[in-house]
Design a protein around this nucleic acid. Structure first.
Lengths: 152, 152
DNA sequence: GCGGGAATCTACAACGATTGTTGAAGAACA
DNA sequence: TGTTCTTCAACAATCGTTGTAGATTCCCGC
């Protein structure tokens, strides 16, 4: 994802209006590595602008996704998560305990679909999810982050 | 997934009651390769037993998942899908157009997380999703299956 | 700077998938 | 068969997300 200023420029260039709410969301996302849900982004943005609506956050996040500035991520935690890191290809580690998501910076060039196994699909690049337990959830006695509800 | 008869036995052995509804669901799942949603399983089961409730279907599907007889699958199509094929490790092809899911029977033994990249996670085996376009959606002029709503 | 038209904003209600609750019905075991 | 405990079906509630409305704000030309 680019800087808030560049995003402002890009929004204008693509015929989208630039509003204080949107810039507030740009700033909330900048440098975020927690793969926040829409709700989480809304909470962050609310700190700067109390009246901002959740709908506006969804709208802006999907605008950003449409521009390719962020990626949407569905890793089975029950809600869509958003990932500002689209510049470096990467995969994800998902904690079975607390649902947290971390980047896994690694390329797997050996990943090629065997001939004939693609069933006629025209496929793009793979998304790989490693499920496991994060350090906090492995040592629950010392855990700081309260494990939050994860589907099932 | 085992045969309906074996599942009946297994349910009894694990202290679960065996009901006509559950056996109906066992039969509906047998040999299904479409990775059906709960709704789809309910529709199938309803053909044999009109009054079966969607809640019962959910309940039984999660019972089966708990026993490891089927797998739950969340590939970002907005609903949980269920996969009776747990005997052969495999991955999935997901169509961006119609949301259909197909098995990709291939192992990727080269998939190892580089040392130090696991961030302290205790990880299991990877789930790989290849997104693309299925043969029907690639040739929309000749498509038979109407592309159905897929999130975004 | 100022006005007009279009896009966006907020609040609210609706939506689809899933789950909790309830009294009634059924399975397992004696 | 009777008892007991589980599961069933119907209903409403919940969660994440999206549609609707009218009010507001932005952008562009004056």
């Amino acid at each position: 994802m680019r800087s808030p200023d560049e995003l402002t420029e890009r929004f204008r260039a693509t015929g989208r209006k630039v509003t204080a709410q949107r810039q507030c969301i740009f700033r909330a996302l900048e440098g975020d590595e927690t793969h926040p849900s829409a709700e989480a982004v809304h909470a962050l943005a609310s700190q700067q602008m109390e009246t901002i609506s959740l709908k506006t956050v969804y709208q802006t996040l999907y605008d950003l996704a449409e521009l390719g500035e962020i990626a949407t991520l569905d890793v089975g935690t029950g809600m869509t998560r958003f990932d500002p890191n689209v510049d470096h290809p990467h995969h994800h580690l998902v904690c079975r305990g607390c649902g947290s998501v971390r980047d896994l910076v690694a390329a797997f060039p050996a990943l090629r679909i065997p001939k004939g196994a693609d069933l006629g699909f025209e496929v793009g690049s793979p998304e790989i999810v490693f499920r496991g337990l994060c350090p906090e959830c492995r040592a629950p006695s010392r855990s700081r982050r309260a494990p939050s509800r994860v589907k099932s």
